[in-house]
Nucleic acid binder design. Structure first.
Lengths: 198, 198
DNA sequence: CGCCAGTGTGGCACGACGTGCCATGAAATG
DNA sequence: CATTTCATGGCACGTCGTGCCACACTGGCG
């Protein structure tokens, strides 16, 4: 029973090892100039194992972007049925980017985002991750407000993911966002995108 | 001098032939079960020529999504410097989806969007196309309103592309959008996403 | 008319990618 | 200790995507 958790930890550990090796090599030489065998060797796994965890070579970095994704799930699942959805989502957005504020992962994450925006292949991965996040969020929101407006869920999901994406892209490109914490910047962007409705 | 235009027409003709063949085969068997050689043969070109027009096998359908993209360019370029940007973009959004209203391309386009949303590989292409459109639009808008708010261009671009995307996805999935023309639906969605600022 | 760029195309070969299949080894269960 | 389960490794194989060269076509120039 407890073994399942242990196995899952080992799985995600190798996934992270592969992701970090891929991120480092991609940042150095780009995706096209990095062989899959090379990433696998750097991560200390076989080529076959590499492709078990990453369907495409470029997708190897995705686990690095999904840290904290499980936080979304529970935080969104814990919203009371009658609560103010917009305010609740604003909290989720702010909290999503407030993770490891000033932590050691800051520089690493920033370098990863920069690399993904510059490399043609990784930009496609960036678009896919954002698109998937938007679709997942929309399906979760649809449960909370089924009935009334069919556009409510898509628009709210779009506003939330766009706020996170735009904040991250500006942060990665322009350096620190004038000193304000990332979470607050994302919340402000989201509020600006969604303040017009109740 | 006129030859350049003629050559360009021949180029886009073969591009469209490849795109239509790919769209048909992808809809029938999916991307994974369709060989590149098969698409090339259906389009009447060589395998080498196919890969000259589509860097990736899945990207072969992109030209079908870019019809009318050049209309954006000139329409956006024709905006007066002092005009109301939000209203102008609303017109562009509405006009973009009003193209060949009730035309023969309606059913074809709807089938293509449906296929792209269902197939895992094509959904990545869908995300890429939308992301690229958003980035191009943002760079164009940045020229029109440089100076004041650095968030204005990203947010406006996001609202415009999201409005088009959400309208198209709902139209493809749920059938006709309760009788309203696509252009009007997209304009309404955009207004709703962007009405809060001047 | 003949020669010469420039350009789109086809054919070939080759490296890289991604997967199906089976064997191995380690950990949990009885 | 026997057995089941699961992640991994190794191998082979088909497909993808590209670099390179040759060919055909078109338009300009002496």
């Amino acid at each position: 029973m407890d073994s399942a958790r242990l196995v899952a930890r080992r799985r995600s550990a190798t996934r992270l090892a592969i992701a970090e090796a891929a991120a480092r090599l991609f940042a150095e030489r780009g995706v096209a100039a990095t062989g899959a065998e090379e990433i696998a060797q750097t991560a200390g796994v076989s080529l076959r194992t590499f492709y078990r965890h990453a369907h495409l070579k470029q997708d190897a970095v995705i686990p690095l972007l999904e840290v904290g994704a499980e936080r979304w799930q529970e935080q969104l699942g814990g919203i009371a049925p009658g609560a103010d959805l917009r305010a609740a989502i604003a909290d989720v957005v702010a909290h999503a980017l407030a993770v490891d504020e000033d932590g050691p992962g800051q520089a690493l994450t920033r370098g990863l985002v920069l690399t993904m925006l510059e490399d043609d292949d990784l930009r496609r991965v960036w678009d896919k991750v954002n698109g998937d996040s938007c679709r997942v969020l929309e399906s979760i929101l649809a449960v909370h407000l089924d009935g009334d407006d069919p556009l409510a869920a898509p628009l709210l999901a779009e506003a939330a993911t766009a706020a996170i994406r735009i904040t991250l892209e500006r942060w990665a490109a322009d350096g620190a966002p004038s000193g304000a914490p990332l979470g607050d910047a994302a919340r402000e962007t989201f509020e600006r995108l969604s303040r017009w409705w109740s």
